[in-house]
Design a protein around this nucleic acid. Structure first.
Length: 821
RNA sequence: GCCGGGAUGGUGGAAUUGGUAGACACACGGGACUUAAAAUCCCGAGGACUUAACUGUCCGUGCGGGUUCGACUCCCGCUCCCGGUACCA
């Protein structure tokens, strides 16, 4: 046994063995408890990147550990195969996106297999396949029937020369990425899904997600953004119409000095007809980005419309302005402005010479309203009948007054907006609707699904090629049979990724989206693992879609749960030189190169060891070599088994056997703990390295010494299996383990090996470490004090001092508080 | 802007969640083996000052305060970096 560790040989061998034995296949029986471990499926961009490798190594470690614990594990993989990058590549290479996508899937599937990831490949799915998206189309027609899907106007980024809608990503510094023309906002009729109908449930069920990181739950809560306030109707001078707004601060109502409406608001459009200057301003506003970050950080500008609103309580006239920071898509597209109590309104008022009226003052102290807005709650002033109330009471009182006088009411408002699911793109799932001149928008009947996307079309960078595909475009109305046109928009790709976790349980079902019995067996996902960047959008949409599926009767809450993911692990990104790896920065590391040079196990080990899962991982080539060296060291530990001889035990051996068994079993405890609590694999691997170091330093003499060494080697091999499975199997085989490490059961802690008679207690004086004492495990404070006094280096700190207080932390430390005598 | 997260040696990170700061590893330095190198093995190491001494003292977890016998950990106020911000996935 002197050959060196060769990853290439053993990895191919074990991958073949695992494939033949089918250990990765999720079984459709209930002999063992089931466990569903899911990693976020990749977008097939061409090559696996290190972020994928990290994600999938984490998932594989969990899946393998659970199998070793005796669970029937579902660990599937697939492809989030629709999306913009395929169209971009198609334009660049003059090949249809389907070709590029399927080639990438083949390439990346090979890479995943080379990593030795234990997926059940029988359940592989690709979202661009009609067998997949037909069910998404089926669901959408159900939503139309229920009134949960609807059409409405929405603003998009529009490039006139390219005659196309641009994704935010395609807008670079306000201009089109391809032709450098300034992008404008344009209104288009779009499809929406009423996620706001589920806002309350999505918010309430966050409480169930105890296995999610608190920060993700918090981000979702903020995103849904429930706020209670009031809807207020302002009158309009010389008009029967009203100007309706929502505010979270009805207590400041008496401080309104102007109103602000969006550039797209009917009032603004009306005013602009007789005011060329205002029309120019509206034109300018239409050019600014729709991104929230851009809207919030740009220079705040406005112009008066010439209209005046009538204050609902005072009856005062206040001017109506157009402001670039008010968006038509949010709320009513109009806001009331209270410069005295809102900093943005304050700055706007200062800039344009609008008046500032203070109506709230601090309950105690003063506030200089000339220098800044007072935005806290306080006590009302200058508010007539409401003077003297504090903000909370005033909110209530003013809202009641508005309701009684038919000028408003209490209202709950969510920040969450309905989900815009239509995209003016080619490489996506067709929206299953036919537009008929007589019947309107007609959902495609079930027996005509799927509406298949023609896969041979070539995008050019202009309008979607679907708009020119006559065979796709023209059809008959399913309702009246007259010639009609298909909907030419496709679905947002978040639609596909919102339900794939459930499709994996019945991946080949041609009768239904999912099977309730399969959902009962596997769902919800026990452990979901993926990038933090998905903390809100994907995870919120998936939660929503799961509830839609439940409410469509595909499964009951009992069978599939109200929530799709029980536990969530959000991994950090992979960085190089401090920034995210990306092609444009040229700082990528190719996983293939690492696998070829060091083997998959080294790549796996490094990504798991270099950082805790939830934090960013800084790539380090030298660290990869270090991981590889560790495997070499463990390999060499095998030699010692051959070299040691069976001899009679001596007394000296008993102590060393006890020490090594302590090391073995405390390692089992630590590593098991890592899997059961938080997946700190970096710490688990460090513990395995320590065990390896202990075994390396250990000289197995005598029969019991050799046995202890063998016990340690087997434990090490078994615990390494979730991380470096090929390597662990090979070591296991050479140790003569009956089953390969992958399928053998997880080692148990022998508590008797952890028992210790004497422990080391740290002694502190005034909280500073001054020495250590060795003492009986269960020694009390008096014994510990006596031992401390007997220690010269500790005792000298107590000379001339009076002991004021003694704190004993059992098993840990003794802190002596003193003062000069 | 808003929301969320982070900052610990030369580097990645650890610290049983208020109890020995720096486990484990990388990089580095010294040594062994070798004709030599690689590989491997052994030893060293937060910083400053100090000692004949790996002797001893002090400082030290982004910055400034606070609570505590005791703070990387809790509280208050900052700085910088990263993620999300609804058509990238």
């Amino acid at each position: 046994m002197s050959e060196r560790y060769s990853a290439q040989e053993i990895e191919a061998k074990w991958q073949q063995k695992w494939f033949e034995s089918g250990i990765d296949t999720a079984r459709e029986d209930d002999e063992q408890e089931s466990y569903y471990c899911l990693v976020m499926f990749p977008y097939p961009s061409g090559n696996l990147h290190m972020g994928h490798v990290r994600n999938y190594c984490l998932g594989d470690a969990v899946a393998r550990y659970k199998r070793m614990q005796g669970f029937n594990v579902l660990h599937p993989i697939g492809w989030d195969a629709f999306g913009l990058p395929a169209e971009n590549a198609a334009i660049k290479h003059h090949r249809p996106p389907a070709e590029w996508t399927y080639a990438n899937i083949d390439q990346m599937r090979g890479q995943l297999k080379r990593l030795g990831l234990s997926y059940d490949w029988n359940r592989e799915i690709a979202t661009c396949h009609p067998d997949y998206y037909r069910w998404e189309q089926w669901m959408f027609t159900r939503l139309i029937e229920k009134g949960l899907a609807y059409q409405s106007n929405a603003e998009v980024n529009w490039c006139d020369p390219c005659h196309t809608v641009l994704a935010n990503e395609q807008v670079v510094d306000g201009v089109c990425w391809r032709c450098d023309t300034p992008v404008i906002r344009k209104k288009l009729k779009q499809w929406f899904i009423r996620i706001t109908d589920y806002a309350e449930e999505l918010l309430a069920d966050l409480d169930q997600l105890t296995g999610w990181p608190e920060k993700v739950v918090g981000m979702q809560r903020n995103w849904i953004g429930k706020s209670t306030g009031a809807e207020v109707s302002f009158g309009l001078e010389n008009s029967d119409e009203t100007l309706d707004i929502f505010t979270t601060r009805p207590d400041t109502l008496m401080g309104v000095t102007y109103m602000a409406v969006a550039a797209g608001h009917p009032l603004a459009v009306k005013a602009a007809k007789e005011n060329p200057e205002l029309a120019g301003f509206l034109e300018e506003c239409s050019k600014i980005s729709t991104k929230e970050a851009d809207v919030e950080t740009m220079e705040k500008k406005g112009m008066p419309t010439g209209f005046h609103a009538i204050h609902p309580i005072s009856g005062d006239k206040v001017p109506v302005w157009v402001a670039n920071f008010v968006l038509m898509g949010y709320g009513t597209g109009a806001v009331m402005s209270v410069p005295a109590h809102d900093q943005r309104d304050f700055e706007f008022a200062r800039k344009y010479g609008l008046s500032v009226k203070q109506v709230i003052k601090p309950v105690t102290g003063d506030w200089d309203i000339e220098s800044a807005a007072f935005t806290d709650a306080g006590m009302l002033m200058n508010s007539g009948q409401f003077d003297g109330l504090v903000s909370a009471e005033a909110k209530q009182a003013i809202t009641v007054w508005l309701a009684e006088n038919n000028k408003g009411r209490e209202r709950v408002q969510y920040r969450l907006r309905d989900w815009l699911v239509s995209r003016q793109r080619y490489w996506g799932a067709p929206i299953p609707v036919v537009h008929c001149v007589d019947c309107g928008a007609v959902p495609v009947p079930d027996d005509q699904l799927p509406v298949e996307l023609p896969t041979h079309l070539q995008p050019t960078g202009g309008a979607s090629p679907l708009t020119e595909c006559e065979t796709f475009k023209h059809t008959d109305c399913p309702q009246c049979g007259k010639p009609a046109e298909r909907e030419l928009d496709t679905f947002d790709t978040f639609m596909e990724s919102s339900w794939y976790m459930n499709r994996y349980v019945s991946p080949r079902n041609s009768q239904a989206m999912v099977d309730a019995a399969d959902m009962d067996r596997w769902a919800p996902v026990d452990q979901y693992i993926g990038g933090v960047e998905h903390a809100v959008l994907h995870l919120l949409y998936a939660r929503f879609y799961h509830k839609l599926m439940r409410d469509a009767g595909l499964f009951t809450a009992e069978q599939g749960g109200d929530e799709p993911f029980k536990n969530l692990l959000t991994q950090g990104m992979v960085l190089k030189d401090g920034t995210k790896m990306s092609k444009s920065k040229g700082n990528t590391v190719d996983p293939n190169a690492i696998i070829e040079r060091f083997g998959a196990d080294t790549a796996r080990l490094f990504t798991l060891f270099a950082a805790p899962p939830e934090k960013d991982l800084e790539w380090n080539d030298a660290g990869v070599e270090g991981a590889h060296r560790f495997l070499g060291r463990v390999w060499r530990l095998l030699q010692k088994l051959d070299e040691s001889h069976d001899e009679e035990d001596s007394n000296d051996d008993a102590a060393s056997v006890k020490a090594i068994r302590f090391a073995i079993h405390s390692t089992i405890k630590k590593v098991t703990h890592a899997f059961e609590h938080g997946f700190a694999f970096n710490v688990a691997i460090a513990a395995l390295m320590e065990l390896s170091n202990s075994l390396h330093a250990y000289k197995p003499t005598g029969i019991s010494g050799k046995a202890a060494y063998g016990e340690g080697m087997k434990a090490l091999a078994t615990m390494l299996a979730p991380f470096v499975p090929h390597f662990a199997c090979e070591i296991g085989e050479r140790l003569g383990m009956e089953e390969t490490a992958v399928v053998s059961s997880w080692p148990q802690v022998d508590e008797s090996a952890l028992a210790q008679d004497e422990i080391t207690l740290v002694v502190q004086i005034q909280g500073k470490k001054r020495g250590e004492i060795s003492i009986a495990k269960d020694a009390g404070q008096d014994e510990a004090m006596a031992a401390a006094m007997a220690n010269a280096s500790i005792h000298k700190w107590l000379d001339g001092m009076q002991v004021v207080k003694v704190i004993l932390v059992p098993g840990r430390l003794l802190n002596i508080v003193v003062k000069p005598a």
